[in-house]
Design a binder for these strands. Structure first.
Length: 793
DNA sequence: GATTAGGGTTTG
């Protein structure tokens, strides 16, 4: 057989004649006696098998010298090889592009195509019994082969095959123009592949090595997977078959035919794992050493920034930075802009831009809680990056390069109205173009750069609690989570809890030593989603006083349908009778919904409560300048049955219009508040519990999950005696008045730790979550007690 | 079958 395939492994019985003398391709000339000579090269072109008569074939192929950088010759390092007869057929069936050949028994003939193909002036003709082709298939260069070589170094056939494939690498200081070479280097600048005006994607790199030469490198390929997988400066790159050339007076490298690339993480001491799409690449001990040496060299040169990216919490306005994050959701904005919602588990120190998109255009789930929403930032991705962003799946970990934090972004695609209160907020833009390496890429799941991030984000998602501002978590009503501690975690002692840093979730068994506030009504709070402020629920004395104050204003108020009641003052008052007025929106009267929304002017708190029991929505008002307005927002703005609702003084922008309510379909506290420009405050229960378990004691807050802890809704607890009793019952059971610790029950608690910043100091806080204090039979522990409520005062 | 780009901020 004139074509011999030299297989890897012990099964090969082909011996390459050892007495052959190898001639580099550029040195081949007709004066050379080819007897006993060989040529070695890699197949860079394989033509079709051409039949020229019965059972007679011709095939043309091109091989390229493997070690050409060592040859100083004007002759090209690639040569045409013409195979004749059965050998052509054999070759056609057993040789592939990329294989390495050893050719023997050839003759040289003038190449008729040299002027056209710029290859060697002569070609090799392979015919007759003397001609032999030894083939080292590129698949024998697989890592498997090189591993087996390492584990059994005495297998000579293996060694031969690998030896033929061993590459030599050139220092960047030794590059001569016009030569195809292999190099190992450290990446000091890179762009993710971008579309060219031609047919390919292009990666633009700058690389360096121990010679300290910095060399530009341009990689073209129409296949994205063939591009180097570079994630950060300092990554190690190995390039095979790149061509050196002069550009602007400097040497640069360009992909040549059959190029390949492998990259490695540049961290000293980390495992040397090749990143490549290639199924057949050569990697041995020597490569391992080369990578490690480059890592150590780069570390000593301080080429590599300490951190590959910047967390959102450290981002400053106007900065360009790299971000490592997880994609939560995305939505097209227009043809040249895409919205990506991402997070990295840290909170941006500046308010960030909100971007409105139609919910049905959003791919991926919107943030599951107010807390996660507060950690989520909107990134607008423009132009050339949209193509890449479009292919991303929510959940993917990304690195975004040269992201721009734009302060005071005010105009946005898609929604230019209602942005007025967002001026000054940071907007994140991935601008079009690729300058400064601008772009984005997917980080593989096993990337060392995301392992910590993954753990943190999963922990936040699981516990759903962890914030520098504890109150941010409020907006996740427990009934919408329905998540309880799964109790698969082993309980830990309180002493142990205190030794670990946040954020963590623990399962503990503990007793309640004490709690605050002792007067339960003081635990009722009003919370604003928007400005995160929290305030106490005012007592009836304070609210009643505000109603009396509002009565002093007794002016007219036109434009509404009204019913006036003239009431005498309590004797012995000599003041004239006062007027109590029921107003209704004219529009609602017209549409038969008049009773849905009543405005009440001149009433006392007590009268308002009585009237509220007959109408679904009662809004106390006054009209100091002849036009209707709400009372001071310290007072409830709305009465619904026994429930009272408050608005945020800071965040409300009250506007009562005559047509108010006409657009409202269902009248509840939310829609009424919205129609009047009131930012509705939410009720919550806030308590501080002192726990102990024999190993130590610990203060934990009860806030986010207090409603499920007590089986009570906070708004009911503010209005309803029975709900208040339930809270008191629970506390009396956990901490019976006058009891000793021995009498108190042990609780199974789920505890979240999180970090809070106060006056520049970080402090660890704990919150009880996912815990049901009332157990399976909530009504079995009703103990006699006295209680205090807001209306008692 | 050659060409593409050849680092150095959008203008939303």
């Amino acid at each position: 057989m004139p074509v011999h395939v030299v297989k890897d492994g012990a099964g090969s019985n082909i011996q390459v004649p050892s007495q052959l003398q190898r001639i580099p391709i550029p040195l081949l000339s007709p004066t050379l006696d080819s007897t006993g000579k060989t040529v070695k090269g890699r197949v860079i072109h394989k033509g079709p098998l051409v039949s020229i008569g019965e059972d007679y074939y011709v095939l043309k192929t091109v091989v390229q010298e493997e070690d050409s950088q060592q040859i100083l010759s004007s002759e090209p390092s690639s040569i045409n090889v013409i195979l004749f007869g059965a050998m052509a057929k054999d070759y056609s069936e057993s040789v592939s592009h990329g294989d390495v050949l050893l050719l023997a028994g050839f003759t040289l003939a003038k190449s008729p195509t040299a002027h056209k193909d710029k290859l060697h002036a002569y070609n090799l003709q392979m015919a007759g019994d003397d001609a032999s082709v030894y083939v080292y298939p590129s698949s024998t260069l697989s890592p498997r082969a090189s591993i087996s070589k390492r584990s059994s170094p005495l297998r000579t056939e293996d060694t031969k095959a690998v030896k033929v494939a061993r590459y030599s690498y050139v220092s960047l200081s030794d590059l001569k123009p016009g030569v195809v070479v292999n190099v190992y280097a450290v990446v000091c600048f890179f762009k993710q592949p971008f579309r060219t005006k031609g047919t390919d994607y292009c990666s633009t790199l700058k690389i360096t090595d121990q010679s300290n030469n910095k060399v530009g490198c341009t990689i073209f390929s129409d296949k994205l997977e063939e591009h180097p997988k570079i994630f950060k400066i300092g990554d190690i790159i190995r390039l095979h078959r790149v061509k050196s050339q002069l550009f602007n007076g400097a040497i640069s490298l360009l992909t040549s035919h059959g190029f390949s690339v492998v990259t490695f993480d540049g961290t000293v001491g980390s495992p040397v794992v090749p990143r490549t799409c290639s199924k057949s690449f050569c990697f041995g001990e020597e490569d391992q050493h080369t990578v490690e040496a480059l890592r150590v060299w780069a570390a000593n040169e301080s080429l590599v920034p300490a951190e590959p990216s910047v967390p959102l919490s450290s981002v400053q306005p106007k900065a360009y930075f790299d971000l490592t994050c997880q994609l939560l959701a995305k939505a097209p904005v227009d043809s040249s802009c895409m919205l990506m919602k991402v997070w990295d588990g840290t909170k941006c120190a500046y308010p960030t831009l909100d971007v409105f998109v139609e919910p049905n255009t959003l791919e991926g789930s919107p943030p599951l809680s107010k807390y996660i929403e507060d950690l989520t930032v909107n990134i607008l991705v423009y132009d050339n990056h949209v193509e890449i962003a479009r292919q991303l799946k929510p959940g993917t970990y990304l690195r975004i390069y040269n992201l721009h934090a734009v302060p005071g972004a005010s105009r946005l695609p898609g929604n230019d109205s209602e942005q007025s209160d967002q001026t000054g907020h940071l907007g994140f833009h991935l601008h079009g173009g690729t300058s400064y390496g601008r772009g984005l890429c997917v980080l593989p799941d096993d990337s060392p750069d995301i392992q910590d991030l993954k753990r943190i984000l999963e922990k936040i998602s699981d516990s759903d609690v962890n914030d520098s501002s504890l109150l941010d978590v409020w907006n996740t009503p427990p009934e919408s989570i329905e998540r309880t501690c799964d109790h698969t975690m082993d309980p830990v002692t309180l002493a142990e809890v205190k030794t670990r840093g946040p954020p963590q979730v623990y399962h503990v068994k503990a007793q309640l030593m004490s709690y605050l506030p002792q007067k339960l009504y003081q635990s009722l709070k009003l919370y604003c989603h928007k400005c995160k402020s929290i305030r106490d629920v005012p007592d009836d004395g304070t609210v009643g006083g505000m109603f009396l104050e509002a009565q002093k204003d007794d002016g007219p108020c036109d434009g509404y349908w009204k019913l006036e009641l003239h009431l005498p003052r309590e004797p012995p008052s000599e003041l004239p009778s006062r007027t109590l007025t029921l107003h209704m929106s004219s529009q609602l009267v017209g549409s038969g919904k008049a009773k849905e929304l009543i405005f009440l002017k001149g009433a006392t708190l007590e009268e308002t409560c009585r009237i509220a029991s007959a109408y679904s929505n009662v809004v106390p008002v006054m009209s100091p300048q002849g036009s209707m307005t709400l009372l001071d927002l310290s007072a409830p703005f709305l009465f619904r049955g026994s429930r009272r609702y408050y608005g945020c003084k800071q965040c409300s922008n009250v506007k009562l219009r005559e047509s108010l309510g006409e657009e409202v379909e269902m009248f509840d506290e939310k829609s009424v508040a919205e129609a009047m420009g009131v930012q509705l405050l939410q009720y919550g229960l806030l308590m501080k519990l002192e726990l102990q378990d024999g190993t130590g004691s610990l203060e934990a807050l009860l806030w986010r999950d207090s409603e499920s802890f007590f089986h009570v809704s906070a708004v009911d607890a503010a209005a309803d005696q029975e709900a208040q009793d339930r809270v008191q019952d629970t506390m009396d059971r956990l901490c019976p008045p006058g009891s000793s610790m021995a009498d108190r029950p042990w609780l199974d608690l789920c505890l979240s730790s999180y970090s809070v910043e106060e006056d520049g100091q970080r402090r660890t806080c704990y919150q009880i979550c996912h815990t049901d204090a009332r157990g399976p039979n909530p009504h079995t522990h009703i103990l006699p007690h006295t209680h205090t409520t807001p209306s008692d005062t």
